[in-house]
Design a binder for these strands. Structure first.
Ligand SMILES: [Mn+2]
Ligand SMILES: [Mn+2]
Ligand SMILES: [Zn+2]
Ligand SMILES: [Zn+2]
Lengths: 139, 139
DNA sequence: ATGACGATGCAATGCTATTGCAATGTTAGT
DNA sequence: ACTAACATTGCAATAGCATTGCATCGTCAT
């Protein structure tokens, strides 16, 4: 229902536009994180830069988070509800499948506490695990 | 001593060249991981592409490992002795300092075991922690 | 000496991210 | 409804880093 999409934008203090509704709708349908290229191909004909800025806006407002999975292209995925622009609470592990080349959020797999050397102070953590995803698992 | 540098190359099955000796010597003097740009600036006048391929060769042979710290530029740092091209054993944490913008290997801070969801199989892990390094720590 | 092979230098290209700016759309006050 | 202020969009241009092609050069074994 498009009303639901609208509410999600409003709740994050994002102005409604046709493009943003379409992008958010597209994002909710994804099972894996997507790159700007994926978004461009998945959407109808639309301007790449506008899509880029839409993702940036979504990220600033805490609607999506970005993932650097080492492929060179930044991936984006929807945030959990309690994220805002300043504090993303997506401290979960991200998984890159070497077989299907997809990047997944593992929202239930949290990054454990790490005890750093003296006087190192952690502000942010990013854990990427590469391997074989459940879909590509053999047997 | 340059003999030591030579041995390290030979041990990793890397042919000796003047350029490689210089690059490895430069790498051993670094306290933080360096980018291709850092290397280019730190070395005498030398061709950027040759430096690029030198780093690639070192990585393939298990002499250095590369680090994606999210800055956009790949960083490189010397491996521990037991690495080879196929299996890098640098499963340590990397730390990016938001203040001095340097990336450090934390060889004594290992990435803990993570229990993944059913049928996800880990082959490689990459943990970047961002924050304030010991040198930039206040008080 | 010469031929094979690896390393180097330079040019060119690909790809992603990012910005400038003008045009367009939206909103709010009058 | 009119208009000024503001946000969004579309297109062009630029910046950076990564990567490849190719000709040249150096080294080593025969
Ligand atoms: Mn995620
Ligand atoms: Mn390291
Ligand atoms: Zn897979
Ligand atoms: Zn620092």
């Amino acid at each position: 229902m498009t009303k639901d999409i609208e509410h999600r934008l409003k709740n994050k203090d994002i102005n409604l536009t046709a493009m943003r509704l379409l992008v958010l709708d597209f994002l909710t349908k994804q099972v894996a994180a997507i790159s700007l290229n994926d978004l461009e191909k998945g959407m109808g004909p639309s301007d790449r830069i506008t899509l880029y800025r839409t993702l940036k806006t979504f990220e600033e407002k805490g609607l999506v988070h970005s993932i650097e999975d080492g492929t060179g292209a930044t991936k984006y995925a929807l945030c959990e509800d309690n994220c805002d622009g300043d504090h993303h609470h997506d401290l979960h592990v991200h998984f890159y499948c070497n077989t299907c080349k997809e990047t997944f959020c593992l929202p239930n797999t949290k990054i454990p506490e790490i005890s750093l050397p003296k006087r190192f102070q952690s502000e942010e953590m990013n854990l990427i695990i590469k391997g074989i995803c459940d879909q590509c698992h053999p047997d």
